[in-house]
């Protein structure tokens, strides 16, 4: 039985799996985002995030631990970071880890892609280093919670009305909100009339 046995084997033997994780982590740190299968992305996440957490320490010991797991892969000559960093571990310590000093884990984001893999139609996902700052993330999460509550209140008020046109309007205002999230207070306005006005100002 495989009860409580963690991790996916991904159809590989241990050495192959380890090498693949190392490759994927190097690619992720080099490019910032990579597209793989959902299963591989989910396996990569803890591996890569642990490396970032290690790199945040910045000590020689941490660096050696990271090198033990990642190796010292050079940055290819056609990459913009070539010449800026000695190797990928250097980039991780000098550029990536400092960005996440205040972030309590969760440095990567996995987003599923509609496109399927050619051949076996495997489900694809993009795994990317989170680019926004921790403050931006917190603000967005607060806004999302507020928006959900506002939507629920609205639904209660207008429950008996037909939904067809309204959902389309909702989609439009959502798009507008996405474009104008510098002004969170204004876009959170509870009445639709206010949101319409906001839209016209933008347009």
């Amino acid at each position: 039985m495989r009860h409580r046995k963690r991790g996916r084997k991904l159809g590989r033997n241990p050495a192959h799996r380890k090498a693949m994780l190392r490759n994927m982590a190097n690619s992720l740190f080099l490019h910032g985002r990579i597209v793989t299968t959902v299963a591989k992305a989910k396996e990569l996440r803890p591996f890569a995030e642990r490396l970032i957490t290690l790199a945040r320490r910045g000590t020689v010991h941490a660096r050696r631990l990271v090198i033990a797991r990642l190796g010292k892969q050079p940055i290819p000559p056609d990459h913009p970071d070539h010449g800026r960093y000695r190797n990928i571990v250097h980039k991780l310590f000098a550029e990536i880890a400092p960005r996440y000093i205040d972030r309590p884990g969760g440095y990567t984001r996995i987003i599923k892609i509609a496109k399927r893999r050619l051949g076996d139609a495997g489900e694809l996902a993009m795994i990317a280093l989170v680019e926004e700052s921790i403050a931006e993330s917190r603000e967005r999460n607060a806004n999302r919670r507020g928006r959900r509550r506002a939507a629920e209140a609205e639904a209660e008020v207008e429950a008996p009305e037909p939904q067809g046109e309204q959902t389309e309007e909702g989609a439009e205002t959502a798009a507008v909100q996405a474009e104008s999230r510098e002004k969170p207070a204004a876009t959170e306005s509870p009445s639709e009339a206010a949101e319409e006005g906001e839209k016209e100002k933008k347009g």
Partner: peptide, 8 residues
């Protein structure tokens, strides 16, 4: 868009 997927 398929649900739970980024819009292609």
């Amino acid at each position: 868009v398929p649900s739970h997927r980024a819009c292609p």
